[in-house]
Amino acid sequence: MQFLAFLFDKHLDKTVLVAVLVVSLVFLNLPEASKVNKAKVVTSFLLYPVNKVSRYFASVEELRQENTDLKRMVATLYHERERLLQFRDERNRLRKLLGFKEDSFYRFMPCEVIANSSERFLHSVVVDRGKVDGVKVGMAVVDYRGLVGRVIEVFPHSARVMLINNKSCSVSCIDKRSRVVGILEWERGNLFSLEYVGSSEDVRPQDTLITSGFGKLFPKGFTVGTIFHVADEKGGLARKVSAVAFSDLNKLEELFIVVGGRKWEENEIYDELEKLSRKKSGVK
């Protein structure tokens, strides 16, 4: 009792110090795995807000870096755009000289897939845009990688899109490098075959296929897929060309309906970008 009184009455401060030092030393001498496990249990509760805030600051840093990179990219794109505008004007002048019809590029309407078809070979999806949004039968549908299909049915607020991996859908394609034309037909999964390619035609693995615009079913110039295998059929006149689609047709989520063309002179996107950058720099 006297000893306890000595410890806790007369030297309480020193006793507390010795106690915490002993506890610290015990922790320090625990096996490492045990220390880490114990700490993990405590930190998951205690340090959760700290980690959360640390991560927030780290993400702010990343965003700042990303912002700098994007600014650099925008500057490069503006420069590139000026160059392209000069090419555009030159191209238009030359087309006029040659008497070509004016061509256009496309306007996209974003949409989301709200349902998939249940049939195994007649693949289609339903998207959340319909008649009220201006969607019409026959419009092409793409995702950010390439062609996906075309609208076959339109409802007031939705539309059914027949995918290119549908047995009844064929796409006229051109080899982007050699300009060889063929008809792309679905085989299985994401794999397609390019039909009607002659045995002497120049097609190679890694070549990109784009829509040809022939037949007016799909607009011209959209990427569709890439060739991965070319084989000559024995004694045949045609080559067996296998291709894979760029878009993962089984995992479609955000799509774009090609709602029409717009003239090269209409620089809506660039104008908006310019407006934004002026607004930011305070120039009216």
């Binding site: 915490v20 506890v23 610290s24 015990v26 922790f27 320090l28 700490a39 340090l47 700290v50």
Partner: peptide, 20 residues
């Protein structure tokens, strides 16, 4: 100890030092 929890390889080290 809280500091040690953030890097538990030397759990107890900062608790010891900071108590002193």
């Amino acid at each position: 100890f809280i500091q040690d929890l953030a890097s538990p390889a030397f759990l107890g080290m900062n608790a010891f030092a900071k108590s002193l």
